[in-house]
Design a protein around this nucleic acid. Structure first.
Lengths: 209, 209
DNA sequence: TTACTTTAATCAATCGTTTGATTAATTTTG
DNA sequence: CAAAATTAATCAAACGATTGATTAAAGTAA
């Protein structure tokens, strides 16, 4: 069945996403990925052409799902800038912290400054999200809600960076926060609320007049 | 001369530090490292035993230099907590942003959750630095300088995370900030002051009563 | 059958490491 | 002192293992 094929490809992508994020691109061998996925090694090349093709497919599957998430937020004229910020933080906290496996992989790949199509695609995707945030902040300054001397790029870096630090270095953040970040239940019940609450308080204090 | 031997080992470590940070542990082949360092491949094993030994040596050289930097700061009773915070931000901005090559390597390694001695060593080293910051924040709360409801672990994550985000993903932060992060001159003249100024403003707004 | 999947076997390339030989420097010996 | 012996440093070449990729044959379903 066609459905089976898609499910199997998706299963491979799931496994590949995890293994890549754990070991990095170079550290994750095709034998390990195919082994953990329970398929023959040649299937990876059959389905995705090459290891790099598989790597790319992992990203492209996600990129599509990230596309239209942050729309219709910067364009809502009736909403105040700070309300939009809070909504952004909520969405960001929910959507992004859940997909921490992919986020790790994403920023790991961005860290390596490989010069290829993938890097450019990823950068453009992330910059699109960033520009939504930028729009909100500019609007807030323009209408007097936010202080006019705020450093917009740094605010963005703080928001994304704080989350990345916690997600990407659980070995550090777990003892820091006092609970295990690698536990999905802890992420849901403790980390998400804590991140959201903190980011709101932090930015409220810094941004608002 | 003995000095020549030390200099050559140090040269290899310099090159290895850069190549590892650019390509990651798996991506950096011993052939590439030895080639860029201008030494024979066998010298790496001769001096450092193995590739992992070389990797470890890169870290151990730095760990020593990071050891006694943040001392005598949390212990100065005459200084107010906020003044300590400002001093910490100054030192952190100066010392750490300059060594961005090593910082990248450091957090890249922390991200991979390899279970070995190195990971534990690195975590302990970083947690020592963190604890200094923690001490200052607790002191600030205790003497009423800081709000009592501040989230200490998140403040720490924000401080470290913001810097890491900028340093580790120059492909993102450069278009965001509007200048090239990979340019050492730009780091010195623009990035350092901007990070310091922002972190002070941000934390001042969040922490102080 | 025919077309699509899946498999085991195998490929050349590259990996980290080791080797034996050679040179340079240092120490020991007479 | 000079000659001999020992140690340290460096090199090209090759090692076995593993990498990503390919092949041809076997299996499966319509």
């Amino acid at each position: 069945m066609d459905k089976d094929k898609i499910d199997k490809k998706d299963h491979i992508l799931d496994v590949a996403e995890r293994v890549f994020s754990e070991k990095g691109f170079d550290g994750a061998s095709t034998r390990l990925i195919s082994g953990e996925a329970g398929v023959n090694m040649a299937m990876l090349n059959y389905y995705f052409g090459s290891k790099e093709g598989l790597f790319l497919a992992v990203f492209e599957r996600k990129i599509a799902s990230f596309q239209n998430i942050l729309q219709n937020l910067g364009n809502d004229g009736s909403m105040k800038a700070w309300a939009k910020m809070e909504q952004y933080i909520e969405m960001y906290g929910d959507k992004v912290v859940s997909n921490n496996c992919f986020q790790k992989l994403l920023y790991q790949e961005m860290g390596m400054n490989r010069r290829n199509d993938l890097s450019d695609k990823l950068r453009d995707m992330l910059l699109r999200n960033v520009s939504e945030l930028d729009k909100i902040l500019q609007e807030g300054i323009a209408n007097g809600e936010f202080k006019k001397e705020i450093d917009i790029p740094m605010v963005i870096a703080a928001l994304y960076g704080t989350k990345n630090y916690i997600i990407n270095t659980p070995m550090m953040s777990s003892p820091l926060l006092g609970y295990d970040i690698r536990d999905d239940d802890m992420i849901e019940t403790r980390l998400k609320p804590q991140i959201k609450s903190f980011m709101k308080s932090l930015l409220k204090a810094y941004l608002l007049n």
